[in-house]
Write a protein that binds this DNA or RNA. Structure first.
Lengths: 229, 229
DNA sequence: CCCAATTTGTGACTTTAGTCCTATCGCGAC
DNA sequence: GTCGCGATAGGACTAAAGTCACAAATTGGG
């Protein structure tokens, strides 16, 4: 399954490659499709390669024996994941699952390693990507350890509002496009606790939740919750 | 303050450089000394460069407004830290503080970036290092989110036992060389909780704690605590 | 050796968050 | 429409962890 070159241009990692490398990549990439909920890989398995999200979203997460999940990161289109096992030689550190119907481009393990070893610019790009990822995980650790559930939920809402919020009559409308189960896994708590937290915010007039769409009525108060407790 | 070249040979990052790059590094490195408790850098500051631990240990951590700390990582001799801001362009994601009297070698920000851009092997080495760091943080997130305090303490004890434990008459002796305050920050809880957890394990005959030295009496039972709750 | 400062140990209490269970809602398939 | 299923709401209870206050022990300087 060869991948059209022009489809690679909008993925930053490929955009940055030399034209020669880019067309070589296009020739060796594989396209994979998943339906929502489809498993991409499991923790502990050897990593098949470097994954790029063409469309859809991918949830990278850990699972406890009890079944509780903790999301590490949700990968959006144009981003890549699955790189760390290629360089530290170990297996997948977490699970990956499609949140939406998703199309991924996969660069085989051997091809990806060879590319990083052959192309200095590609290696530097990966270094940048990994740096950002480290920062993200560090801040996740901070939130989990040092902030209460309310603060964590508030932060997710505000982050999404800033990135994707639609200004509206009564406030900013955010569409998380996550079930409460996934939202709970994202903030590291149980589903019921998220329900209660959202209800609470609604009762206080801070947000108005209708299904997956949430309208932020009082941005100030929501922001102040981030530092609560 | 030039650094003797032979002092660099035992730091993996430098060992892997070409002799020319290594001697250039030696010429531009700065040596910094800190006493125990000395602040190396603060979260949010611009990062001055890439740090290498010659001797001593460095605690990388986040602080809450309340003063509670969460350790991300304790850096031992021969390891490096402070790299991520060099490549993602942002500021320090966390604090760094010496746990012991510590000697660091510092490669200026500009020198470090230039080295990674000039020397492909150095970039790949950093990629390996960052990969390991990502895995470490991911597992920290997992522990914080999905495991109880007892399990987290048990895991730290066993990890140290495997890395540094001295076989002894009644079990394996571990010297954490951490105050309970730092141990609490390492597992992400309050000091009192760590005290109680250790006392509990002692009462059950799993460990015997005398000051900072802990003897693991029943490895099996300690290991089984890791999956508790 | 002794004092001050830090570290450790403990009890009592509060708060937060997790669990269990049941009810209701809402959407899609048919 | 309506049946059924998964998602959401919510009440009641439990358990884990955080907090506070203070006592005891240890350590390292002088």
């Amino acid at each position: 399954m060869p991948v059209p070159i022009h489809d690679l241009a909008d993925i930053p990692f490929f955009a940055q490659l030399s034209p020669a490398e880019r067309s070589h990549a296009a020739a060796v990439l594989h396209e994979h499709r998943y339906q929502a909920g489809g498993v991409i890989f499991l923790e502990g398995e050897p990593c098949p390669g470097l994954f790029f999200v063409k469309s859809g979203r991918v949830k990278i997460y850990k699972v406890a024996p009890s079944g509780r999940e903790q999301v590490l990161c949700i990968m959006h289109p144009r981003t890549c994941f699955g790189g760390c096992p290629l360089f530290d030689g170990a297996n997948n550190p977490a699970m990956a699952e499609a949140l939406d119907p998703t199309i991924l481009y996969v660069l085989d393990r051997a091809e990806a390693v060879a590319l990083a070893e052959r192309d200095h610019a590609a290696a530097l790009t990966l270094l940048k990507i990994f740096s950002g990822r480290l920062r993200l995980l560090a801040s996740l650790v901070e939130r989990l350890s040092l902030r209460c559930v309310t603060a964590r939920v508030a932060e997710v809402l505000l982050t999404y509002a800033d990135e994707r919020g639609l200004p509206q009559a009564h406030g900013i409308e955010v569409c998380l496009d996550l079930s409460q189960h996934d939202l709970a896994a994202l903030v590291g708590t149980a589903r019921e606790v998220v329900t209660r937290t959202l209800r609470d915010m609604e009762r206080k007039g801070i947000i108005h939740a209708r299904g997956r769409r949430i309208v932020i009525l009082d941005r100030e108060r929501l922001a102040s919750l981030i530092s609560s407790l």
